[in-house]
Design a binder for these strands. Structure first.
Lengths: 138, 138
DNA sequence: CGGCATCCGGGCAGATACTG
DNA sequence: CAGTATCTGCCCGGATGCCG
C-alpha cells in the first residue's frame, strides 16, 4: 500500500504529509482549511463580519493593518470558498457589502475556540518562551 | 484611549488588527497562536507526536514533505512555546527524542476540531469554489 | 545521528498609480 | 467607492556542505 505519487503539479509532498498526520485521506481537506485558517487575514475578516455586514471601506477601517490589495484578495478567497457573500449595489457611488454565510458562521465557532485556547494558554506560552530564551541565550 | 504603539520592531499594524477583531486586548495572544497554528508544519508535528514520542529522523519520516531545515525550525519553535519537549541522550550515535507536553496535548483537541470541521465542510467549499470558478471564468 | 551555516530562487505582500 | 495593474523588496523555504 505504498503511497502513489499522482501527477499533481507541485505537491512538495505536503499533501501527503497531511494524510500521514493520523487520519485517513482527508489530507487535502485539512490542508485546504489550514491554509485558509492559517492565513493572516482570513479569520480576522470573518471575525469582523461576525455580527454586522460591512462594505469594503468599513471592513478596511475595522482591520487597521490590512492593505487594500490584501483585503481584496482575502475577500475574494473567502467568497470563492463560500464563507462570505459579496453584494454589489448599482448605485453611484458604488456600494459593495460583505456578509457572512452560514458556513462562515460555523467557522466562527472554531475561531472562537481557538481564540479561547490562545487567551487561556498564552501566559503559559510566554512563560515557556522566556524560560527557553533565558536558557539558550549566550 | 488611543492605541499606544510601543517600540516593537515591525508591527505592520497586524497586532492592532487582532485587537480590533472583536474581543479585548488579547490580540497578541491570538496572533501568536494563529501564527503557530497557521504554520504549515507545526500542527502536523504536534499531530504526529500525539500518541508516540519520536526521534528526529522518525519524525521526519512520518512527515514526508518536510525538509530537515523546516523540521528543525518547527521543533525549535514548538519547544520554545512549551508544546513539545526535546530530550537528548548522551550516546553514540546521539539520540534525540521529542514528546508532547500537556499543553501540546490540549492543542490536539483544537486541531481535531479543526480537522473535523475541515472534513465535514470541505465538500461544501469545493462545490462553492467550482461554482465561483464557473461563474467568473472567461 | 542530528543538527547548523550558507547560498539562492520563487512567491507573497506593500506601495503606488490608474479605472469604472 | 471599490477595486485592478504593475513594480519591487523581502522573507520563506529548499539544497547543499560541514560539525559534535
Amino acid at each position: 500500500m505504498s503511497v502513489e505519487v499522482t501527477g499533481d503539479p507541485a505537491p512538495t509532498g505536503y499533501e501527503r504529509s497531511c494524510e500521514a498526520a493520523g487520519d485517513v485521506d482527508h489530507g487535502r481537506a485539512i490542508r485546504d482549511v489550514l491554509d485558509r485558517v492559517g492565513d493572516k487575514w482570513s479569520l480576522l475578516v470573518v471575525a469582523t463580519l461576525r455580527d454586522e455586514r460591512l462594505r469594503f471601506s468599513e471592513l478596511q477601517r475595522h482591520i487597521p493593518g490590512i492593505s487594500q490589495r490584501m483585503l481584496t484578495l482575502t475577500v475574494r478567497q473567502l467568497e470563492r470558498d463560500g464563507l462570505i457573500t459579496r453584494t454589489v449595489y448599482a448605485e453611484v457611488p458604488p456600494r459593495v457589502e460583505y456578509e457572512l454565510t452560514d458556513l462562515g458562521g460555523t467557522l466562527i465557532t472554531l475561531a472562537m475556540a481557538l481564540a479561547d485556547w490562545a487567551i487561556e494558554n498564552h501566559p503559559h506560552i510566554e512563560e515557556s518562551r522566556a524560560a527557553y530564551d533565558a536558557a539558550h541565550q549566550r
